[in-house]
Each structure stands twice: as C-alpha cells, then as structure tokens.
Simulated assay, not measured.
Amino acid sequence: MKISLSSRRLAAAVGVLLPLLAPAVAGAQSKTTIRDRARQEAVKQVTSDESRFSVLDGVVTDSLLRPLNSADVTVVGTGARVVTSENGRFRMLQVPPGQYLLIVRRIGFAPTSGMIEVPARDTLRLSYVLERSNNMLDTMRIRGTRVTMRMREFEQRRQQGVGQFVTQEEIERRGSLATADFLRYMRGVEVSQVTTQLWGGTQVYSRREGAGMSDGVGANCAMQVLLDGIILPKNFNLDLLPPPKQIAGIEVYSGAATMPPQFGGPDRRCGAVAFWTRDGYN
C-alpha cells in the first residue's frame, strides 16, 4: 500500500500536536473534576444543614379545650406563618434549631405568645389556649387601619410627655443592629445579658423599683415586654424581637405609676417596654 506525501505530513503533524494538546485536555478534565467535587461538597453541606431542621407540631384550643380553626401562628423574625386547620392543629416544616418567639392569635380572642427552643432533627410538640375577648377587633382583616390607629395613639402618649419614646425616625437615624440596643439610652432602665436562667439572653430591668443588677438575678425587677400590644413571657429574651428595620416605635415606662392602663399585666409593677412594628403582629 502506498502512502502519499500529504498523508505522511498529516501524520507527522498529528504526532507533533498530540503531546502539546495532552496537558490542555488533562487540565480541562482536572478542572471539570474539581468543579464536580465542589458541587458534590456543596450538595453534601446543604443536605447536612437540612438534616438539622425540625418540625413544629401543635394545637390551638379555647379555654374549654375546644379546637380553634383559622388561628394564625407566627414565628417572629423568620417569616414562618401558618393557620390552624379544622381540628385546631398546625404544622411547620424545615424549622432551623434555635430559640424563637411564637405568637398565636385569632379573631375574637386575646392573642398569646411563648418562647420556644427548637432542637435539631426533632419534632417539637406545642399547645396554646386562647381566651375569648369581646373587645378584640378583626385585626387581621383591617391590619393596616389598626397599625395606623395604634401609631396615632403612640404619638398622643408621646405628646403627653409621660414615659420615654423612640420614634421610627430615630430608629432609622441611629442605625443599630439590635432592637434591644435602643433601651440602653433610657433612664431608669438596665439591659443585661443573663446566662443563669433557662432562657437567658438579653433582658431588661427597672432601676426605679425592685433591686439593682448588683443584687443578683433573683432580686431583679424584670420589666413587662409587649409587642404590638401582646404581652410577652416573663423574663423575655429581647434578642427574639424583630430587627430595628421592622420597628415603628418604642415606649418605656420604668414604673407602674406612669404606665398606661392598657399595658397592664401580671408583671406591671416593674414597668413596661412596648415595641410597635411597622406591619403589625396584632
């Protein structure tokens, strides 16, 4: 078989080029392998993170333990929100572990709240009881009007000069990262990190009534904390509040004598701190 001169030249050229192209091909394969490995590691990380998520499984009833449907259940600061079914049950999936504030409300009932500790890779079972209230407005249907009304009342109390106030403009101007930081400027108030209690975190105490911080945690006069008029649990962890960008106003009363009657509650003797949000949880 005869091989032409052009064929010989082509074979020679291929023989010269192959060694030159081999490193580039190997490099491309190596890069592809690196990308694939990085992608696989990312998938593993996401899968690992998701495996830590938990489930909230709960029920809402009235004072006679009858299931309440259409109750609104919100985990503050997460965007997680569900409505109870006909049997009063609710279920939230893919909840990251951590500490949260949960608010439950329904038309015709006084809202309630609670702090929850969500474990990793588990199901947290919850139950809440709502007390009927004849004075509750249909706050979920006219929330915009409700927010406007309460901020008007906020401004009226501010004009009266009783208590201490932080407006939305001041919040935006100061630019703090944590909502609790605004209380550090208040007279008669002390903000402290607590680690010796079950919930701990950032808590607020009155300096005017009860003992001071130097007398130990057991002697402190913990102030009552409200969010959109909802009384929060005693010794509430302020770290669970919405961020400053969601806050429309703050008012502080360091003793019961100056506190408006609508802020009354079981812990009112030590004063109250009321936070109002821009969109409204109630």
Rank of each mutant, 00 (worst) to 15 (best):
E251M: 15
F109V: 06
P111W: 08
A120Q: 00
F275W: 06
P19S: 07
C221P: 10
W199Y: 03
Q45V: 15
Y100H: 12
E50G: 03
D181I: 15
D62M: 01
T277A: 13
M149K: 13
R81M: 05
T148Y: 06
L130G: 06
R150I: 13
G265V: 11
E190W: 05
G265K: 09
R184L: 13
M149P: 08
G265S: 07
M136S: 14
L17W: 14
L240Q: 14
A13F: 07
L17R: 02
G255R: 06
G265E: 05
L65Q: 06
V46D: 10
E172T: 15
L183P: 01
L17A: 12
D138G: 12
D279P: 01
V43P: 02
V204D: 15
R9W: 11
S133E: 08
G114D: 09
T84R: 00
G175E: 10
E50M: 12
S176D: 10
S85L: 02
L227F: 08
T74H: 12
R81L: 05
Q168W: 08
P119W: 02
V46P: 05
I103T: 06
S254F: 04
E117I: 09
G108C: 13
G264M: 02
P243L: 09
L126D: 01
P266V: 07
L21W: 10
G58F: 00
L20E: 02
A256D: 01
P97Q: 04
V46E: 11
R278H: 09
S127C: 00
